[in-house]
Nucleic acid binder design. Structure first.
Length: 492
RNA sequence: CGGGGUGUGGCGCAGUUGGUAGCGUACCUGGUUUGGGACCAGGUGGUCCCGCGUUCGAGUCGCGGUACCCCGACCA
């Protein structure tokens, strides 16, 4: 089984076709590199949004919304930032179409050329900081803690559904603080929110760490990341939180008067996760039968499939299901009774497995006579017939157990593929097999780049909460002194 | 932007030396079925990516275009 799973995840397009298309999450759009997220896929995203939003609000963050269009001039103020994004921006140059004078449909009206081009946001730092400038005058105005849920556009050379689409949905938080310490603490706090979400909601084990300077967000002084391992052993950056220092405050002249009456630049953070998390979910947990959704994110947690020959059996089973459904819903469990009478039970079983529904209940004439129900769990595909009596107590506990089971399985898989490595020869071989290798690094961008050139492996992070290994050693490539091990992997 | 590949019913594909398009699946109708993706019978559905050319005749050959996919480069 594990082998087949790996072979699927090995080939990106294969998992996409097997899991995403068949499970009805998304399809190719007519627009290059874009994606249509279908209702079932979007329902999963909505669950993610709802849970994350609640977590943000508990940290004092409020939602806001900023414009899609950013004047080009805003973009050129922060030099590193523009260098990082300039190559992948969609730009609006005109505001009107007209009928083609030659009769060939519609053309862009040359008279409608914009005075200043508008960039479709690839991220909103620049427009948000231009707004924050007007919100901040006193130390009493700080901190500003805003988040927005929106879409962004990055004209990537190569796109992959969910992992790197030209347009994607995300949230981006942007905070302004009076002190560096407070801003740094916020960046750390938010990466931990992401890690909690990944671990406890997505059942996705992640490593928290700092990005190396090479891998940092354009314009950041420090980038914190959560890194997850997919079933082929490749790494996926699942969320990031940046300490931006005063770079944006200085570029956009955002100053406040402190308690001593002095003008000070504010300190900033930004942090985000995107629909890429959907890709992580699919690739981390999916198996040969389709998606495996952690109960916390499943739009439908329990599906009930009635099995019957005659109408009397059908109505009797449905009646029992209705009662259980009401009892479960009272406990906050989402339930669907699949009463479609044109499909056979076996077809329904396969279909709901493809969609990753955590628990399936089946009931037929045998069960009616015996007062039982068949309970099947998606994560390990096991089935058990048990008394219908008390099932509404059993299911919530079962869902918890599945949530944990999915995490434990993913964690065991990852842990089996994380190892220390001190030999360059061994590194080159093992990194290609899909491993997270804990290696000594001399801290230089040159070494990092050479390793990337030779193996495609990058430093995923310098870990801070798990796999931390601060010990003296020598760089695996250069042989120069190192103060600790970092995580190397090949990434998506 | 380089290298490779593919465009044929909704989806997945076959199509020989050029002879006027077929299979699986899906869909529709009827019947029998229903505890792991049912079966039988009948049926609907295609300007073969576009254009030009060669030819008595092009899905097939030639030229040009175009779209998509894969591998790179690129990429919180």
């Amino acid at each position: 089984m594990a082998k087949e799973v790996t072979s699927r995840a090995d080939n990106y397009s294969q998992w996409y076709n097997d899991l995403v298309v068949k499970a009805d999450l998304a399809e190719q759009s007519a627009v290059r590199g874009c994606m249509v997220i279908k209702p079932y896929g979007y329902a999963i995203w909505e669950k993610m949004q709802g849970i994350l939003d609640g977590m943000f609000k508990r940290t004092g963050v409020q939602n806001a919304y900023f414009p899609l269009f950013i004047p080009k001039s805003f973009f050129s103020r922060e030099a590193e930032h523009v260098a990082g994004f300039a190559k992948e921006c969609a730009v609006v140059t005109h505001h009107r179409l007209m009928n083609d004078p030659d009769g060939n449909g519609v053309v862009v009206d040359p008279d409608a050329k914009l005075e200043e081009e508008l960039v479709v946001r690839p991220t909103s730092e620049t427009i948000i900081w231009s707004v924050y400038k007007n919100w901040v005058t006193s130390w009493r105005d700080l901190p500003i803690l805003c988040n927005q849920w929106c879409n962004v556009v990055r004209w990537e050379m190569r796109t992959r559904p969910f992992l790197r689409t030209a347009e994607f949905l995300w949230q981006e938080g942007h905070t302004a603080h009076a002190t560096a310490e407070e801003a740094q603490a916020k960046a750390v706090e938010m990466v931990h929110v992401y890690a909690d979400f990944a671990r406890n909601v997505m059942a996705l084990p992640v490593i928290i760490g700092h990005k190396s300077p090479n891998e940092r967000f354009a314009g950041a002084l420090d980038t914190l990341t959560i890194e997850a391992m997919m079933q082929d052993g490749k790494a996926l950056q699942a969320g990031t939180s940046h300490f931006l220092g005063q770079n944006f405050a200085k570029s956009f002249d955002v100053q406040y008067t402190d308690k001593e009456g002095q003008q000070q630049y504010v300190w900033a953070t930004s942090w985000g996760v995107s629909t890429r998390l959907m890709g992580a979910l699919i690739m981390a947990h999916g198996d040969d039968n389709g998606l495996v959704l952690p109960p916390a994110l499943a739009p439908i947690q329990v599906v009930m499939v009635p099995i019957y020959r005659a109408e009397e059996e059908r109505s009797a089973v449905i009646a029992k299901f209705e009662a259980v459904k009401a009892a479960l819903e009272a406990k906050g469990v989402s339930v669907k009774i699949d009463d479609r009478d044109t499909l056979r039970p076996g077809f329904k079983f396969a279909e709901w497995e493809l969609k990753g529904v955590p628990v399936r209940l089946a009931m037929g004439a045998r069960d009616l006579a015996a007062g039982t129900v068949e309970v099947a769990r998606r994560d390990d595909l096991s089935k058990e017939t048990m008394p219908l009596e008390g099932i509404e107590e059993h299911i919530p506990a079962l869902l918890d157990s599945i949530q944990k089971g999915i995490y434990d399985k993913a964690a065991a898989f990852r842990d089996s593929r994380v190892e220390k490595c001190d030999s360059w020869e061994e590194f080159k071989e093992k990194i290609q097999q899909g491993r997270f290798l804990l290696c000594h690094w001399d801290g230089t961008a040159e070494t990092e780049q050479k390793i990337k050139d030779e193996t495609k492996a990058t430093i995923r992070c310098i870990p801070v909460d798990s796999y931390v290994c601060e010990e003296e050693g020598v760089d695996i490539y250069s042989g120069k002194p190192s103060k600790g091990r970092v995580v190397f992997a090949i990434s998506y």
